[in-house]
């Protein structure tokens, strides 16, 4: 299809031989690994101090439950992955346009729309690889440092492991849904910007501004895909799952918000992708 396969092969070839793509795949998992080690050291020193002072907490069993740390790892990793994907999406097209390497593809084999679709698909491949590595790293290291088990308080099982896993699955599902829209947003900024630097700063700037100021938007923020991304000021359901698996029983996902989380990112994705393809047809490359 107008060189789509060639463009994907070319994208993957460059990804295999350059650093940026490897960073996206590895960085979230490495950050989670680092976070797990730091938190383990911190909790171990806190427990040692409590033990020395004779303090004991009825929450010890909850504090030692690996599920909380596992979800924290996922949340941190997804926050990082989201930002990296937006930045890389903004960078990839604009940088290759700046250096002129896109021209070879366009002149020889690939249509402009195929080029955008190839980048979109390639970034999803990176996202999936990164996500799998992130889930694996977070799960393995949480299990290594703490113990997975149900939430038990005063000898009563508050939440079973099956329920916890179901909540984590839902939280992860809801947090992943906005990622394609984030990638499409990055590509949209990339084709609009005049340079790679401008593209990356604009895409990250808008993403972070949406994150910081979404509180000011009130109910309107529910109609912005970025509100459902795992982010620095997190309002995604994954953050609530983190509280849930630590024994907070007041966590309930609003059904309306869940529905918006499921459906808002799709129109945003289609809109950004359509605008990107429309603009790239008219741009000087």
């Amino acid at each position: 299809m107008n060189g789509l396969l060639t463009a994907i092969r070319s994208e993957i070839f460059v990804a295999l031989h350059t650093f940026a793509s490897k960073l996206i795949v590895l960085a979230p998992a490495l950050i989670v690994l680092l976070q797990s080690i730091i938190v383990k050291l911190s909790t171990a020193s806190q427990q040692a101090r409590d033990s020395l002072l004779g303090n004991s907490s009825f929450e010890d069993s909850i504090a030692n439950n690996a599920y909380g740390y596992y979800v924290d790892g996922l949340s941190t990793g997804l926050t990082m992955l989201g930002l990296l994907l937006v930045a890389q999406a903004a960078y990839s097209f604009s940088y290759e346009r700046d250096i002129g390497s896109l021209r070879h593809l366009l002149v020889r084999r690939v249509s402009r729309s195929s080029l955008i679709l190839a980048k979109f698909i390639h970034l999803h491949v990176l996202a999936v690889l990164s996500l799998l590595l992130l889930i694996l790293t977070s799960y393995v290291f949480s299990g290594m440092f703490w113990e997975f088990g149900p939430i038990v308080e005063d000898g009563f099982e508050l939440i079973s492991e099956a329920e916890i896993q179901e909540e984590i699955r839902l939280g992860l599902h809801l947090a992943i849904i906005p990622i394609p829209a984030a990638i499409a947003f990055g590509l949209f900024v990339s084709v609009c910007a005049q340079s790679a630097t401008q593209a990356v700063t604009t895409a990250l700037g808008i993403t972070l501004a949406l994150d910081i100021f979404k509180g000011l938007l009130g109910n309107f923020s529910n109609y912005i895909y970025a509100s459902f991304q795992a982010s620095l000021i997190d309002e995604s359901y994954l953050q609530d799952v983190s509280r849930l698996v630590r024994g907070y029983s007041d966590v309930l996902i609003d059904d309306r918000v869940q529905q918006l989380n499921l459906w808002v990112p799709f129109p945003a994705l289609l809109l950004f992708l359509a605008l990107t393809i429309l603009i790239v047809q008219r741009r000087k490359i």
Partner: peptide, 20 residues
């Protein structure tokens, strides 16, 4: 031009190669 499937090659005034 992409339909020409490589029958046309262009070499530009800048190198236009991936630096990495």
């Amino acid at each position: 031009l992409h339909k020409a499937k490589g029958k046309l090659v262009a070499i530009f005034d800048s190198a236009s190669l991936h630096p990495n």
